[in-house]
Structures are given as C-alpha cells and as structure tokens.
Nucleic acid binder design. Structure first.
Lengths: 232, 232
DNA sequence: TAGATTGTTAATCGATTAACAATC
DNA sequence: TAGATTGTTAATCGATTAACAATC
C-alpha cells in the first residue's frame, strides 16, 4: 500500500500514553453510571467533576478513540462504552499465560475484568509440583516443564511474570524463546529482552514511592501550617 | 546550610512525578550491581545503557535526590543507595493497614521489599470471620470491627485497599473517618475522598491497556511489513 | 431563541533532550 | 595531559490547558 501524502503512516499514529492510561478509568466510571444510575448520556463537564480531571482533556481523550458527542447533551454512554471496548480489545482478546502461582499469581488468575480489557488468562505454570494440576478460579496450574510446548501449541503471545524476583530473567528468557512477544512483569527486576519483545513493568514500589512522597509533602505542609499557627 | 535566595518555600519544591517513579528502578538496579557484581561506582552512561534511558535524564534525576558524582568515575553506589533510601523513606517508614485478606491482600502482606521503600505493613483486616486471627507472613488478620479502634490507637496514616470493588468506597470511608490520610487503592473503583486525603490508584487495567496497545501496534507493524514483503 | 456543550486552533507548561563548559 | 563524565544552561518536544466558534 504505502500511499503518499498523509505524513505518518497509519501504524505510526500512536495514542499518547497518558491518554491510553485514562481510558480504563473512563470505562469503569461510565459502566457504573450506566448500571447504577441508569444514565444514558454524560458530558465531559460532569465526568471531569466526578473524576477530578479537566473537561477539555476528557474531550481530547475521547476524540482519540473516535467518539463524538452532541452539544447540550454530551456523549452517549452506550456508544462511548462500545468505542472503548473496541479500542481496548474487548472484541479481540489475547490469550495469556501466568508463570508463578503464588498469592499474586492466584490473585491475577482470579481477577475478573481482564476480559473487559482484552486479556484472557488461559492457565498458570508453577515449578512447585505440589501446585501442579491445581485449579484456581477454574484455571489449571501446570508444571513448568510444559511451558514452552504449550506456548507454541496455543500460540500464546502474552506472558505474565509472577515469580520471585531472582527467577524473573530466567523465566522471561524461556518465555521469549518459546515465542512470547509481550511480558507483563510483576517482579521488581528490570528485565532484558531482545528487540521486538515488549515488557510492561508493574512495579509496586513505584506507586508506593509516589504515595509516600505525597503523604510526606502533605505532612510537611501541615506541620508548617501548625508552626505558623503557634507562631502568631 | 540554608542560604538565602531560593524563591519557592521548601514545601513548595516538589520532585517531578516521572523522576520519582524512576528512583525505585535505579535503586533496585544499583543494589543488584553492588551485591552481584561488587561494583562500587557507576556512571550515568552505563546505567542508561542497562536501563534503556537517557544518561542526561539519569543525571537530572540523581540531582533531585541530592546526589553528586565525579567526572571520569561516575557515582559512588554506596552513597547513591544511601541517598535513595533516605529519600524514599527507608529511615522513616510509615505503618500501614491492609483491608482485605484475599489472594491480593495476602500477596501484599508477604511482599518483601516494602520496607526498603518506607512502608511497614502492620496487620490486615477482613470481614470473613474464618480469616480472623489468621497469620499471614507473620502478620495478623483481624476482624473488620476492630479497624477504627486500631487505626486510632496506632495512629495509622496509610490504608491499603484490597477488597472487592463494590466495597471499596465504604471501606475507604471508614478508614478516612478513623483518621487515615493516604489510601492505596488496588480496586478499579474511583474513590471519592475529602480534601486533604491522598489516594493512589493501582489500576491493573491501566497497565494492561498499555501493554495490549503496544502489542497491537507491534503486530500491526509486523503485518504491514509482511505485506510489503509479499508485494515486491 | 438562549444556553450549555462540543470540537478545534492556539497558548502554556513541564519534562526530555541537546550542547557544552567544568572537572577529575 | 587527554579523555570520559559530570552538571548546567538552552532548545525541543509533547501534553495540558485556554479561548472560542460551531452546534444542537
């Protein structure tokens, strides 16, 4: 194909990550609005107020997923949700394997709602023989030895890493060698992968650092105000 | 030394969030370098290569936590780690409660490494009487009724929400009423809290959306290239 | 019509990256 | 000294916010 003028190719236009990260929030919010309050339209103004965001930002975000609204009434929630599901891959879910069936792995296995976002966890793997053939949330825990074979047979593209940090790189290498193209990493270990393989880091410490810092700043401010108070 | 001229008040200078989010990654990386490779210095150049970041960005980040390096040799890892621990609150940890002792709650209770980042999980609470007085990772699971009393008695400031999404707001309200100032929310529910209370959202769907999107873009690109290939 | 809301174009803000002098 | 690396100042880039005309 490769048509001429239109500066970036289709495959080069990529949604900004901040926008992408907000879509699931909108989705969750709107679904609730629809189910609990039986609303069928919502304006960027009300959404912004409820979610503590800027209405202009919301309109820009919604533009990215191809949604349009009506002046005076806002956006049709039904249509908006459909757009989002489409965008997030609800209608084109990817299969995934989890490696590591500890508490975290089991929590992920049981997490409902991944399907909404296009992820279908098929099974888990664990090196502990005691866990082999266990069922968690209706999904099988298989022995590690079967990993490569199963990845190939089912053409799995996504691997979820919920193993101890010191095993992360080894397991990741095995996944990649077997054909996995995207790794969702729940360990704090910074993985090295070949070109073309995607790694998404889910680092709890990162979030915690943000939370602790905000709290610290707030406490500092409170203390200062306290002082000023004393002071006068 | 606290010299004069510096326009904004101490409490107004706040580290940029992107920088803050990278600190734990540096920390984890450097600790490994120190322990596994017995290195005692590292340059922004090598760190950048290993972590796929820009060296200038790393230098700027390190400046924020007050670290300095030496031309030619780089940064002293020992000192760097100390700075980071100090910055992340390792020496000034906050106590926290978890509410919800399901798989996720138990995974969090057992997560080692929170201490490194200034968080000390004291106990968990669960409404399921079967779980009452259970021990997880050496920490007690207490019945929900005791929540308010314990928060007040121990002056807990941080609450971790690992309950089902439909209970999130109710439990959050109870936490806040009892005096909790920061809520780490692991449910997908968007919480409403009074002014002055901090909420940190740990939304798995958000990360997943990013991962799925990157994979989709990569597959699209691969497909396109495949076509071009065919084509010529 | 009047008024709220969309959607677009322009301005602002902040983070990343570049350029380069200072330094060990 | 020569050369790699720091740290600072300036340029760039991208996201957020503002302004406002179009629209139902």
């Amino acid at each position: 194909m490769t048509e001429n003028r239109k500066p970036p190719t289709a495959s080069e236009i990529v949604i900004p990550e901040p926008t992408l990260r907000r879509i699931p929030m909108y989705y969750q919010y709107l679904k609730r609005k629809q189910q609990d309050e039986r609303l069928d339209a919502s304006s960027s103004t009300t959404m912004a107020a409820d979610l503590s965001l800027n209405p202009i930002q919301i309109r820009k975000d919604l533009e990215w997923i191809g949604a349009t609204g009506k002046p005076r009434t806002g956006y049709d929630i039904e249509i908006l949700l459909a757009h989002m599901e489409d965008f997030l891959g609800y209608n084109n879910a990817h299969d995934a394997f989890i490696v590591g069936a500890g508490h975290l792995g089991q929590a992920l296995l049981g997490y409902e709602g991944f399907e909404d976002y296009g992820l279908n966890i098929v099974a888990a793997f664990d090196s502990d023989p005691a866990k082999a053939d266990m069922l968690v949330a209706g999904k099988k825990v298989l022995p590690m030895e079967k990993l490569e074979d199963m990845v190939k047979r089912l053409h799995i593209l996504i691997g979820i890493l919920a193993v101890p940090s010191y095993e992360a790189q080894t397991v990741c290498d095995r996944m990649v060698a077997a054909g996995i193209k995207a790794v969702w990493n729940f360990t704090p270990y910074h993985l090295t992968v070949p070109d073309g393989v995607i790694v998404q880091h889910e680092n709890m410490a990162t979030s915690l650092a943000v939370l602790a810092n905000k709290l610290e700043v707030a406490l500092r401010k409170a203390r200062e105000q306290g002082n000023h108070h004393d002071h006068k």
